[in-house]
Design a protein around this nucleic acid. Structure first.
Length: 993
DNA sequence: TCTTGCCCTTA
DNA sequence: GTAAGGGCAAGAT
């Protein structure tokens, strides 16, 4: 193949012995910027976090190549940058990567620094007008591979995966992840050679590659695997069975072809620098050291100096300019101060060797731990099955010796309130774990009632008696993943586990928003190890067996590994708590919640089964009546629960004016669309709305709830998740008791079925307008604060302030609009959303928002500050320091970007309110018991707590509950706005609310 | 039998 | 416009 090459190319071609490393510079910068903690150079505050990450990676690659073994160092090396956003792709498709946002302010000066870093390390950097870095990488990779050399692309960009092959590998140094054919297959469902075909079908919202509507990665892979490539598929599209899919493939065939051009990397860029010129040149030690010194990277400076033999102390920090970041007293020369100095001091020439140790690397310990944990191999063959009490006691002794033990239970159910203990695993020293089977039964038991206990297990009572002192001993820290589950299982056996750490909550406190906090995911993320899937042990679906039927050898491999992985995770995550200043959040808002929620779940709440059963009957009757009417109105029978069939009838057969379409192109039949039609006098849509309401109440509530009544306790025990949301809220499931109907009369009948025990009352205590109060405090809005102090109607006040109308005798519609705006503000308002909510035009909504911001300029300022923060840091924080991460907020897709910005505006508000309620909950039990009150906390619904209280204690309980809730911020924080709690008691939840 | 899309319930 | 969980239909497996 002919390649355009420089005519002066006289250097030898690459051979099979050569190894070319191509670093995807631009994406690396963004990744380093967002993934690493912000780091600024002292003393001038120059942001250098991304530079630091870049230099460390560069150094490591140059020294070691991909593996620490000698002989893998690269022979050729280049960092490839994007030159400008305008490329040949914009000509094919103008929307491609359109509206690429400005990079964060504190990243901008780092681009230049990183280019300087490549020079300082004597590394080639290549960029070329009109081409993306990806195209240059593709061209170089192909050329080098054709010469027989090995190529490694350093990037995390999925668009580069199409290049992977026998000679070309890819590694993501940030995530320590190597991409081979297997990983590509995992991601795209096809091999690297078919990645382009799949991408052109599935599209890419981030880069604005359109693809074909309704086809995602899964379907795209499926089609390509069947038809081989895009053109074949398009030419045979008429054979596709699925209507929608076939139509879309035909209609959007050209769009798919354009997409293919967009995603196909150009492998024949007429490169200005030939690949042969990319050979590694000797590192100029003093030059590199000078640069690193100027940056203030003490650790790396030392390392490079040692390796290159450069005398660090004799080398002057390098001279250079950072556009827009010149220190007035240094005139562009960046020099470090030897010691904390007064702002005006300009003692140039301070010796970096005098810098306090570790000043630039505050997280050394945490990083070292993470590194060590990643390096450890998790080896199932080392696990022990404990079959005698003597051995168990030795394991317990080891927990006492080390002072900690990772602990995990195996049971017969995911529901901790129904789970029978089958065994448990322990691990005090990483890599050394055991499983103690206690309740395994013979799998051959068949219909005659199952087999008996498998021989060779310690009697459960003996084992638990031996374990109890250790599990409750204050000198042994227990470590679990999702501790609440194990806590509940064990408390049902009379063991109150404590003190304990929860790796799930550690991860949540540190990384909320960055991904899941489940063990398998954390293990892959932090340890690079995929634990044995539960499915592999117990199967799934109908043929799933309970853990007590698992043969013990398999059980040991699975269960002991869990404890081992948990301990590893703890070793990685726990040190981060201090270095990332999240210890207080974890200790006050996370860890103490485990037993509090555990006790709430264990208590459960009483529901009236008969009442629900009657309701189901009533709802069924109502539905049947409506079904008759609907059939009559529609003129045919159809499945009313099918939005598809309904859409066909309303907008096809009956020819009603169709409103919105869903994202897959089907007619929307949402309540708002149907209500609009009903308002125009159409009968059928209004019947459908009523039918749907009854259907929802019946299926989700009156039919389903009785199934959750625990046969032993006769109560319903929800399960709260402490780590399911990005903001810090709890979530509730199986059943979800945080979405019990309340808005409609019919719905409240469900709520009435939640009742107090005989001789008791339910107390519901809820915060009034907590989120608006939190906002008033955080954004410091005088009018809002005054209104809350004076106990005014906040929505009326808002309306009065905005529209200049008196609060007295206000038109309810005006107040309603103000209320919608207030909610909109909390949700990160958009004209689009407000218009939707109020049923007004976008322009009018826009005017409202403008007026609002004029009247409350502090709110606008607050929002802008939060946006700036989230773009700069990748996270936002609540008033108690909880972090909510939005790692994708800097996406180029404008819709996604706005979405993350709104979420980031909302998170501190919603999250602070959640923190406040958590604080109240953590204190509540102790305050009640110290007042000799027997009230029991049962439920939490975001701004509300439900208690069950002996009738004669209601009067005394209410004021105490209110006080704890209203003073939940104190003493560490005094809100500048009072919190108000309304509480009342009744026999059922509806009347208490 | 499993996944996805749609719709609906809450704060 | 924020944050959740869950039921059902439809289509793929």
């Amino acid at each position: 193949m002919i390649r355009a090459m420089s005519t002066e190319n006289s250097l030898p071609a690459l051979t099979a012995d050569d190894h070319l490393i191509l670093v995807d510079g631009s994406t690396f910068i963004f990744r380093a910027y967002h993934a690493l903690p912000p780091l600024t150079r002292k003393p001038d505050g120059l942001p250098v976090g991304a530079v630091s990450g870049f230099c460390n990676m560069l150094w490591k690659l140059l020294q070691e190549g991909l593996t620490p073994e000698k002989g893998d160092e690269p022979t050729h090396f280049a960092v490839i940058f994007d030159h400008s956003s305008k490329t040949f792709r914009s000509d094919i498709y103008p929307e491609y990567k359109a509206q690429r946002p400005e990079p964060p302010e504190d990243l901008i000066p780092q681009f230049g620094l990183i280019r300087q870093a490549t020079r300082a390390f004597s590394v080639h950097s290549v960029e070329q007008e009109g081409y993306e870095a990806d195209d240059l990488i593709a061209t170089y990779a192909v050329q080098a591979a054709e010469m027989g050399a090995r190529v490694t692309i350093v990037s995390g960009d999925k668009d580069l995966m199409q290049l992977i092959g026998p000679k070309v590998g890819m590694i993501d140094t940030m995530k320590n992840k190597i991409f081979g054919e297997e990983e590509v297959f995992e991601k795209f469902g096809v091999g690297p050679d078919k990645v382009i075909e799949v991408q052109s079908l599935a599209g890419d919202s981030v880069d604005n590659v359109p693809g074909v509507p309704g086809i995602g990665l899964k379907t795209a892979a499926l089609l390509i695997n069947e038809y081989g490539d895009l053109e074949t598929l398009l030419s045979r599209a008429s054979e596709i069975k699925q209507n929608k899919r076939r139509e879309n493939l035909i209609e959007f065939a050209d769009q798919a072809r354009v997409s293919k051009q967009l995603v196909t990397l150009k492998q024949d860029v007429p490169v200005n620098v030939p690949v042969t010129h990319l050979s590694v040149t000797d590192l100029d030690g003093p030059k590199a050291v000078g640069f690193l010194k100027a940056m203030g990277f003490t650790t790396l400076t030392k390392r490079v100096a040692e390796t290159t033999g450069a005398e660090a102390t004799n080398i002057e920090p390098a001279d250079f300019q950072v556009p827009g970041w010149d220190m007035p007293d240094h005139k562009g020369r960046l020099v470090e101060h030897a010691a904390p100095a007064a702002k005006s001091t300009s003692a140039a020439g301070g010796d970096p060797a005098d810098l306090p140790k570790g000043m630039m690397v505050p997280q050394t310990v945490a990083e070292a731990r993470a590194e060590a944990a990643r390096a450890t191999v998790i080896d199932a063959s080392a696990y022990e099955t404990v079959t005698t009490l003597e051995r168990l006691k030795e394991w317990i002794a080891e927990a006492y010796e080390t002072g900690h033990v990772a602990f995990d239970t195996e049971t017969t159910s995911l529901d901790a309130m129904q789970a029978d203990l089958v065994g448990l695993s322990l691990c005090s020293v990483a890599g050394k774990a055991c499983y103690v089977p206690l309740g395994h039964v013979d799998g051959e038991g068949d219909l005659l009632g199952g087999g008996g206990l498998v021989a060779g297990q310690i009697p459960m009572d003996d084992a638990l008696a031996a374990l109890k002192p250790m599990l409750e001993d204050p000198s042994v820290l227990k470590i679990a993943q999702n501790l609440k589950y194990d806590w509940l299982v064990m408390i049902r056996h009379g063991i109150d586990i404590g003190p304990a750490d929860d790796t799930m909550l550690l991860s949540y406190a540190l990384d909320a928003g960055k991904g899941g906090n489940g063990m398998d995911e954390l293990s892959e993320r932090w340890l690079g190890h995929k634990p044995i899937p539960f499915k592999e042990i117990c199967g799934s679906g109908k043929s799933m067996i309970t853990f007590d039927k698992v043969v013990i050898d398999k059980a040991t491999a699975y269960a002991a590994e869990d404890a081992d992985v948990t301990l590893h995770l703890w070793q990685v995550l726990k040190p981060r708590l201090a270095s990332e200043h999240m210890a207080t959040v974890y200790e006050t808002l996370e860890r103490p919640m485990v037993p509090v929620l555990g006790r709430m779940e264990k208590r459960g709440i009483s529901v009236d089964r008969q009442m629900l059963s009657r309701l189901s009957g009533d709802f069924a009757q109502g539905m049947a009546a409506l079904e008759d009417e609907i059939r009559e109105l529609a003129g045919e029978n159809f499945n009313i629960g099918s939005p598809k069939q309904l859409g066909d009838i309303l907008f096809g057969k009956m020819g009603l004016p169709g409103g919105k379409k869903t994202k897959t192109g089907a007619w929307s039949t949402s309540a708002s669309v149907l209500e609009d039609l009903a308002a125009e006098g159409h009968e059928l849509p209004s019947r459908i709305v009523s039918w749907r309401q009854l259907s929802k109440l019946k299926s989700t509530y009156s039919d389903a709830l009785p199934g959750f009544i625990n046969p032993e306790t006769n109560r319903v025990h929800t399960s709260y998740s402490l780590a399911a949301t990005t903001t810090g809220r709890l979530s509730s499931s199986e059943p979800n008791l945080q979405n019990i109907p309340v808005r409609t009369e019919e719905g409240r009948k469900i709520r009435k079925a939640f009742v107090a025990e005989k001789g008791h009352k339910l107390i519901s205590a809820d915060y009034s307008q907590i989120e608006l109060r939190v906002l008033a405090h955080m954004a410091d809005i005088p009018q809002l604060k005054k209104a809350f102090e004076d106990g005014l109607d906040i929505h009326a006040m808002t309306a009065s302030e905005m529209f200049g109308v008196p609060i007295e005798g206000m038109d309810p519609m005006v107040r309603r609009q103000a209320k919608a705006i207030n909610f909109g503000i909390i949700y990160g308002i958009s004209a689009f959303g407000l218009a939707n909510q109020l049923g007004i035009g976008r322009g009018e909504a826009s005017d409202y928002i403008k007026t609002y911001f004029e009247r409350f300029p502090g709110i606008k300022d607050y929002m802008e500050t939060v946006k700036k923060d989230v773009h700069a840091n990748g996270y936002v924080t609540t008033i108690f320091g909880r972090k909510a991460h939005y790692p994708e907020v800097n996406t180029k897709n404008p819709n996604m970007r706005s979405f993350y910005e709104r979420a980031a505006i909302n998170a501190p508000i919603q999250g602070s309110a959640a923190d406040i309620l958590r604080r109240a909950m953590v204190r509540m039990e102790d305050r009640l018991s110290r007042s000799k009150l027997d009230a029991q906390m049962l439920l939490q619904v975001h701004d509300e707590l439900i208690f069950e209280v002996p009738e004669d204690q209601v009067e005394a309980t209410i004021p105490l509950v209110r006080e704890v809730m209203e003073k939940a911020c104190e003493p560490v924080l005094q809100l500048s706005v009072p919190l108000q709690v309304d509480a009342r008691a009744a026999d059922n939840w509806d009347e208490a609310h």
